[in-house]
Design a protein around this nucleic acid. Sequence first.
DNA 1: CGGTTAATTAGCTAGTCGGTAAACTACCAC
DNA 2: GTGGTAGTTTACCGACTAGCTAATTAACCG
Lengths: 111, 111
Amino acid sequence: MATDQLSIVFGALADPTRRAILARLADGPATVNELAEPFAVTLPAISKHLKVLERAGLISRGREKQWRPCRLEAEPLREANEWTNRYRQFWESSFDKLDAHLRTILKGSEQ
Amino acid sequence: MATDQLSIVFGALADPTRRAILARLADGPATVNELAEPFAVTLPAISKHLKVLERAGLISRGREKQWRPCRLEAEPLREANEWTNRYRQFWESSFDKLDAHLRTILKGSEQ
DNA sequence: CGGTTAATTAGCTAGTCGGTAAACTACCAC
DNA sequence: GTGGTAGTTTACCGACTAGCTAATTAACCG
């Protein structure tokens, strides 16, 4: 994958397990085992996912006794959100809607 | 990569060349050669990128004489935007801002 | 028809991704 | 110390990705 920050963030989001982990962390910090519990994969696999999320800046990790709690860091999500937002006009005023509008106008002129 | 639609969309966005192609298409449809022109990669590489974008539903392609014009399809961007939007509260009311607020309150009580 | 332009497909290399099992580190409790 | 719990690292595997060159398809022009 590319090494620029936005590519790393989008790359991290391109996996349902990692998105589910972020969703879980929206309810508050959690340990690795708590995060792993809902998934049918081994702990090392989760550990890898967490490393990907950390590299993207989407989570941060503390140290508390033998636990390494993870917490959500949303700033990269803001940047991803802003990038997609630049295309808002294209899904709000789609060609389909333009077509429908033109048809309405034409139909009106026939009456 | 995972095969669910949102993962495919995020995966397609996880590349600066593909994001640049989408940015170019925001100015209107373009042929493959027009899209390839700004980049220091070969035409087959661009062709692959377009296939990735097409699989994600981010572009559609027509046939006009010997050209295969591409156009932007923004609906998947709306879905990506909505997914990130669910975390808006986390970047708008960050712990940093909460910290700053608490410090302001404490400082005020000292006076 | 032959020649040119547009674009894709095929085949290759190198690197990354998601997963595993097994070994290892770090901490706690007895 | 021993043992148990939490988590990471290493080594490996199969599948996929991104790039290239070379060959191929498709459509136009003369």
